[in-house]
Structures are given as C-alpha cells and as structure tokens.
Amino acid sequence: MCDERERLIGYVYDECDPDERQVIADHVASCETCQQEISGLRRVREDLLAWDVPEYESVWRPFVPPRAVSWRDLPVWALAAAAVLLLLAGGAGGAFTYAMLPHRPVLAAAAAPRPAVIPASDVVRAADLDALEARLTEKLQNEVDARVKLVAAHAPAPAIEPASDVATSPEDLRRQVQTLRVTLDRVSKAQDQLSKSVYADLMSFGETQRRIEQGNNYILTSLVKHAPADGSMGR
C-alpha cells in the first residue's frame, strides 16, 4: 500500500500548490499503485457525471413588493365605518370646542344657547338657525327688559319722590331727566354687551355645525361615488 494515496485527491482535483503537485507528479511517475489509483479516481468521476437530475421548473413564487393601499381599494363597509367614525369625531370635536369657549359675562351666559334648542334633525339648516336666533333674540329682549327694570330700581333717584312721578318744579324735572339719561345710557351699554356676546356664541356654534355638515356631505358624496354598481358591501 502506498501512503501517498490520500494526497492524490488534491492532485486529481488540481487543488494543491505547485510545489506539492510537482512532488506528487514525481512520485506517481515511479509508483504503479498510485498510477492505478489516479486512473480509477478519474474513471469514477466520469461515471458520476452520468447522474442527472429531472427537468426543473421553478417552484418559487416571486416576492411581490407590497402595493400602497389606496382608499379606493377599500371595501364599502370599511368606508362606511370610517365615515361613521369621522362623524363621531367631528361631533365630539365640535362639542369639545364649544365647551372650551371662554365664559361669557353673566348676561351672555344667561342667554347662551342650550342644547335643548338644537334641532333634533341630523342636519342643521339655515332655517333652524334663524329660528334659534329668533328665540334667542326674544329671550334676550326679555332679559334686557328685566335688567332695565333692575337698573332702574337701583338707579340713584335723589330728587324723585317715590310717591309721585310728577315734577313739582323745573329743578325736579331737570334732575329726573338727568337720572333717566344715566339709566338709559347704562341700559344701552348692557344691551350692546349682551348683543355682542350672543352674536359671538351664535357664530361659533354656527361655524362648528357648518364644518360637521361639510364633513358629512363629503363622506356621503364619496360613498355614493365609489359604491359598487351591484350594490354589494364587500369586494
């Protein structure tokens, strides 16, 4: 047995450095056993080439990069759910904004719109707002009248005789006129302040309602526009 046989593997596969290759080549030239080994190894390598494999067709399904999802691809039920959520969010936002408005003066707070006056219908319309304004104006007028009486009751009336409202002298008449002017001036200022406050409240409330209505209209328009022709709710 020749001890060089396992070194022949590097020689047969031509995977040894040149010096080693030369050493092996010199040895093989003079060793009949190694010559037979090399011959046998080369023959079996040729036989191995006969081992073929079946035709191969790819079984790999290529990865597809994820496509950005458009809202157009969403099923109708998802759009409807989104619309409801948007509606609720809009309503909650409006209510929150309204609740967070700065406090009005006493007169304005007394006349501020209450939830009870909001129409029960789903959509607030101009006619509803007009009716609301009329009711508030009437309430305001009543409040003003009450305030006028209150102011008049506390107004300084040094020369006015409680028992008589008839001037007894030109001097008394001038004092009464002066007192009335002061009273009317105060009432006028209070009325202006109250009007401004109510107007601000109405504008804020109207703006909130208008935005909610716009959002609802947009959502409903989208739903109608992209609803499937067959009326199905899913894809």
């Binding site: 494999v53 079946p54 191969y56 790819s58 790999w60 990865f63 990069p65």
Partner: peptide, 30 residues
C-alpha cells in the same frame, strides 16, 4: 424583494439538484 427574487432565480437549479441527489425524489426536492 426583487433582489432576493434574482438570487432565487440564480440558485434554485443548483439547490434543486443538490436536494434531488440527496433525497432521490423530485417532489421532495422541490
């Protein structure tokens, strides 16, 4: 992902050959 698809296209035949010669069944190799 496309780069990985290219790697698959490049190497799936050699991998199939290795699996087939190891297992001996084309179905298993696939």
């Amino acid at each position: 992902l496309e780069s990985f698809n290219q790697l698959v296209a490049r190497w799936e035949r050699p991998i199939h050959a290795l699996a087939y010669r190891t297992l001996g069944r084309d179905e298993d190799a696939r």
